[in-house]
Design a protein around this nucleic acid. Structure first.
Lengths: 124, 124, 124, 124
DNA sequence: GTGGTCTAGACCACT
DNA sequence: GTGGTCTAGACCACT
């Protein structure tokens, strides 16, 4: 869940993924506001500039829209876009894992069992 | 295969994964030599310093051993270590993907179908 | 017409330009009243504070005069001042465009043809 | 020419326009390097972060490509893209000027004469 | 040397 | 209060 500054993925991308997932999960109302830059920065214990960079990218992706002096708001087609982006990210991760496994000549059955084991572990 | 300088994973770690996978797949003979730093750097289109850093790390992991003036050689227990490490890397990737999916509240069935679809696509 | 909150020019300056142009075009009678702050704010979908700032600036420029409790009125020499200011603004914009074109080494003929094309398009 | 920190246009956009114009004018060789972030920052008396933001946007526009550890390089189709973007910027400025003039009910002849006067003044 | 990310903190326009 | 821009300065991976 949280943000991990020691990962290779830059913090601002982790924030993008985090917000994108939350939008896909409909944790934010369409047309509703995102947490303010400062508020989210405090919550994530991260610099406001870093949050802002994430928010700007989310705007570029069409997920949010900023209204000057008011805040940043979820767009109408955000849920759809976010869901698609999230699925794509999942696919990318799975592909990367499968490629690593194939490189090591792991049998498909091994990969499947790893997958289902992790899936079970992380199940809600 | 394939080193991608635009990924977030540092190149030297990508090289480690690459060699580690090859050892696990027994593409290198136990006690046999790895490609020279210079040769691998040319092959991967990468700076020799970067390859060297990867080799140093592989030595630290116990997968290879440097014999001065002779080259770098695969250790006796390298295959086992490499296999374990590769499985661990695969697990990490799958976990990351599943976490992203759960964050977006994707149904498990969706994740399973993405996984099997990718697995089929990448099948040998 | 048209205030665009996404332009770089601050909204209050866009309002100044807008009123200044209207005075130059004699859409407001000399000695006649400007729309009230509140009314203009509603019309332009803008915060009243922002309109007020524009009106203060217009007063500083000598185009309008506040009469307490009565409203804001066009001064005697406003038309002249406004016309000069508008011409100056036009010149500034043209200069900026020409500078950009010169920076890109666009031939003068290209700039002229762009200019006349736009002029024709925007013709009344 | 230069960068003006007091303009309304953000510095990083001024840098974008500046580099874009220079590419259009073929002041940089295709496939050749741009000045390094630090070098340009020194030259323009601006913070490196600001230059970097401009360079990132230029990359997003497809005008340049960064090679890690090496620098930032002009892409093959950069001249074409830059020329088109520069013309578009010129058109935008002229449009803005003409709109201001029309708002003030300036005769077309006045606008033309202002335009040609400025063009003559700024002529090489 | 190169670019990429991040923090800390300032000032501005707008609500 | 809100977001947008900028500076100063740090650390990292890569050449």
């Amino acid at each position: 869940m949280g943000i991990d500054p020691n990962k290779h993925v830059p913090i601002y991308e982790q924030i993008i993924d985090h917000i994108c997932g939350s939008i896909a999960a409909e944790l934010f109302a369409v047309d509703g506001p995102l947490p303010s830059i400062r508020a989210l920065a405090l919550e994530l214990v991260v610099n406001p500039n870093t949050v802002q960079r994430a928010y700007q990218e989310l705007e570029r992706l069409g997920l949010v829209r900023t209204r000057k002096g008011l805040g940043i708001f979820v767009t109408d087609d955000a849920v759809d876009l976010a869901r698609r982006r999230s699925e794509e990210s999942v696919r990318t991760m799975f592909s990367a894992g499968i490629d690593l496994g194939r490189q090591a000549d792991l049998p498909q059955e091994t990969m499947k069992s790893i997958f289902h084991q992790v899936l079970a572990t992380r199940a809600g």
